[in-house]
């Protein structure tokens, strides 16, 4: 039982909170801009590598490098919007999706050019896990869980309490109505990209702390982030966060030896869990747990 908690449930919650941040950013963009942003994974990667630069240059911990990651990723999202998405704003969502796919390739190529294909990590060495009775928890896992909670709270306050957040939700609910009632559309779009990029960067750093940095870091969890966003009801950031948490736990629990002594699902097929959840949601409850936009 305690092994289940230590080696499956806690890592599941950690992975789930990373997915939650990634999926919330994705869902936010979908809500306001109305297209599936395929470069979100590459924004995560970019943020993680920007933090690596700060860790290397200043000798700080990756947690302290989070602001650097965020500040380095927001301009990339804003620049991509300005150069490529804004001129296509009136095109079909599919065209924007294809365009974001091109942006993903460009960011990925830059990561390869600057940092190369070899996996990297923020810190070498071993930190002993904390022991709370029989519960063992890695220090980094504790920080990720707490950090994700704080970020989620901040985004919640922004969306529900601030004027800008209300404008964002108005855009998501009905863009035309928002426009004629005087919502500053261009400003809301910029803010949406900034929040989404910040969430992506933080999720990227957390993921890189928990695993390692590779140029495909973010792309490898893009499917999971989309599955989580659709599970939660696309366009609903809170739903996406819950969807991410559920998906992360499901992925880790899928390799628990539920029947006999072998893992239920070979760990190398964890990606397949996200895919299975995606297909299941599309068949059973396509609007997601919380009614997403149609």
């Amino acid at each position: 039982m305690i092994e289940f908690l230590n080696f499956y449930l806690i890592p599941g919650l950690v992975l789930g909170s990373i997915y939650a941040l990634a999926a919330a950013g994705l869902s936010l963009v979908y809500g306001v801009m109305r297209f599936a942003h395929f470069a979100h994974g590459e924004l995560m990667t970019w943020g993680a590598y920007a933090a690596l630069l700060a860790v290397g240059a200043l000798g700080i911990s990756p947690w302290l490098a989070l602001p650097v990651a965020v500040l380095a990723t927001i301009p990339v999202a804003l620049a991509a919007d300005r150069a490529f998405y804004a001129p296509l704003r009136r095109s079909a969502p599919a065209v924007l999706l294809i365009s974001s796919f091109g942006v993903a390739l460009m960011i990925r190529a830059l990561v390869y050019l600057i940092w190369g294909p070899t996996p990297e990590s923020y810190a070498r060495g071993f930190t002993p896990p904390l022991l709370l009775g029989e519960i063992r928890i890695q220090q980094r896992h504790l920080v990720i869980l707490g950090g994700a909670l704080l970020v989620a709270l901040a985004v919640h306050l922004l969306l529900s309490r601030s004027r800008a957040g209300r404008a964002m939700r108005a855009m998501a609910d009905d863009p035309d109505l928002a426009r004629i009632t005087g919502v500053p559309v261009a400003g809301v779009i910029r803010l949406t990209w900034a929040v989404s990029a910040a969430l992506a960067a933080i999720a990227g750093v957390f993921l890189a702390v928990d695993t390692e940095l590779t140029p495909l870091l973010g792309f490898n969890v893009l499917l999971a982030a989309f599955a989580a966003a659709i599970l939660g009801g696309i366009g609903r950031p809170w739903g996406a966060a819950l969807g991410g948490l559920i998906l992360g736990v499901a992925e880790e629990l899928s390799s628990y030896p539920w029947i006999g002594n072998a893992p239920l699902l070979d760990p190398s097929y964890k990606t397949a869990v996200a895919f299975a959840v995606l297909i299941l949601v599309l068949v059973v409850r396509p609007q997601g747990l919380f009614r997403g936009m149609g």
Partner: peptide, 13 residues
Amino acid sequence: LFLIGLALQLILL
């Protein structure tokens, strides 16, 4: 790789 991404953008635009 960067150039294919860019080419895609330029054609779309």
